[in-house]
């Protein structure tokens, strides 16, 4: 039984100091091992906050856990230090370097150390964080066809579980290294969004309870408060793009319900404010993400929505 901090790897800096990448381990009796990874990109403080929230609960009850929970609160500390997405030196996206190399340069070594350390975990949760230009509804992403992960993801208190096909670049992502990864995101990149961190943090604790790692007595909320998510695939998620460039003014918020033809935003001339385009919902459904950074080109995505499906 333990609550320990382990230095996964230490990044030596040219000026002589070093930066540790840490893992917190909470373990009780024998049982499943769950890995919770945050901060692979430095502009995702929401995920780091959730990691700390979960740690805060586990600190008080690790001896009563039926299994082990490993929390990696910030994998990319150099980027988080500057609130930027990529590893600062050479501007490398750490989430395109997995599984990493043991003898490569610093981001490769970090990717390798994390991959090796997580290997063997029964459940892997990645706190991905939203892009800074968008406000996202709380959502879980799983690989399409991974029914076990999709089933588990129903417990994480999100609005949507999205079963996704892998992209061209995805072989080098963290999530591609393991079976059954559940990636969580919500809110806005580089910001903490009221309610989102609490929802995701409670969702992870609920999942730990559902898989019997966290005893009922330690769950700090009632299970009935958990969201029942929509289950969708790529074909049910639609990206709405602007036809004109300019200044996008949203008329919808994450998780609003819209009917086909509803006004969901407007594009105005950035110099005069004159209306250039009215953006309409092409179908009935729920708003999954809204562009918050208002400057747009022709073809910029401004809204992502899911089709109306039976809840």
């Amino acid at each position: 039984m333990s609550d320990s901090i382990h230095v996964l790897t230490r990044i030596g800096m040219p000026a002589g100091d070093s930066v540790p990448v840490i893992r917190r381990r909470f373990s009780g009796s024998e049982g499943l091992r769950v890995a919770i990874v945050a901060g692979i990109r430095g502009d995702t403080p929401e995920g780091m906050r959730v990691a700390h929230q979960v740690c805060g609960v586990l600190e008080g009850c690790h001896a009563r856990l039926n299994g082990t929970v490993d929390v990696y609160p910030c994998v990319n500390p150099l980027a988080a230090h500057r609130a930027i997405r990529n590893w600062p030196f050479f501007d490398q996206d750490l989430n395109r370097l997995f599984p990493g190399r043991p003898n490569g340069h610093a981001p490769d070594v970090v990717a390798y150390a994390l991959t090796q350390d997580v290997r063997g975990a029964d459940i892997v949760i990645e706190m991905r964080g939203a892009h800074p230009s968008f406000a996202e509804a709380p959502q879980a992403h799983v690989r399409r066809g991974d029914t076990h992960a999709a089933e588990l993801a129903k417990s994480v208190n999100v609005n949507v579980v999205w079963a996704r096909d892998p992209s061209v670049a995805s072989t080098a992502t963290f999530a591609a290294q393991f079976q059954g990864v559940i990636s969580l995101e919500g809110g806005t990149g580089n910001r903490l969004t009221s309610g989102v961190g609490k929802a995701l943090g409670e969702g992870i604790l609920n999942l730990l309870n559902v898989v019997k790692v966290l005893p009922d007595s330690e769950v700090p909320f009632h299970w009935a408060t958990m969201q029942r998510p929509l289950m969708v695939e790529d074909s049910q998620v639609h990206r709405i793009r602007t036809a004109r460039s300019g200044f996008f003014l949203p008329e919808a918020s994450p998780w609003d319900t819209v009917a086909s033809g509803d006004v969901i935003g407007r594009v105005v001339d950035p110099s005069t404010g004159a209306l250039q385009e009215t953006v309409l919902a092409p179908l009935a459904g729920k708003i999954l993400a809204v562009r918050e950074q208002p400057v747009v080109f022709s073809g910029s995505m401004v809204i992502r929505m899911v089709e109306q499906v039976d809840e």
Binding site: R85, S133, A169, R241, V295, F297, S298, G299, S300, M301
Partner: peptide, 22 residues
């Protein structure tokens, strides 16, 4: 610069997509 996307990772592109895809 607009969205920090690498044009050399956007091929074959998309005539109805984002700026770099177009």
């Amino acid at each position: 610069p607009f969205d920090d996307r690498d044009i050399n990772r956007a091929f074959p592109g998309d005539p109805g997509g984002s700026a770099v895809e177009r």
